[in-house]
């Protein structure tokens, strides 16, 4: 999978195509690679595109990735607050 990505970005279904694996299984692999920092993914519409994390990422790319991570963290924090049941929150 990583080998395929070294030749360029690919969608999850493109990665799954030559492998006899389900999309869900491929996605799980991609998530492991992503959490290890080897691969980054970006979802546009219904397509998740995966690319190899280059050591020599440009500053702009690194920065945009950081921005996205900042949002991921914030939306996770929102989830934590919502999970508390927000007892003082009035339902409108």
């Amino acid at each position: 999978m990583v080998e395929r990505l070294t030749s360029g970005p690919a969608s999850v279904s493109e990665l799954a195509e030559p492998l006899s694996m389900s999309l869900a299984a491929v996605l799980q692999h991609v998530q492991v690679l992503e959490s290890s920092g080897l691969v980054t993914t970006e979802k546009v519409g219904r397509t998740r595109t995966c690319r190899i994390e280059r050591a020599a990422m440009t500053a702009a790319e690194q920065w945009i990735t950081d921005r996205r991570r900042g949002w991921e963290d914030r939306l996770d924090r929102l989830g934590d607050i919502l999970n508390e049941g927000a007892p003082t929150e009035e339902n409108r």
């Binding site: 970006e42 979802k43 939306l75």
Partner: peptide, 10 residues
């Protein structure tokens, strides 16, 4: 452009 999705159980 980036898209982030979340499902919240509320």
């Amino acid at each position: 452009t980036f898209v982030i999705e979340r499902i919240y159980p509320v």
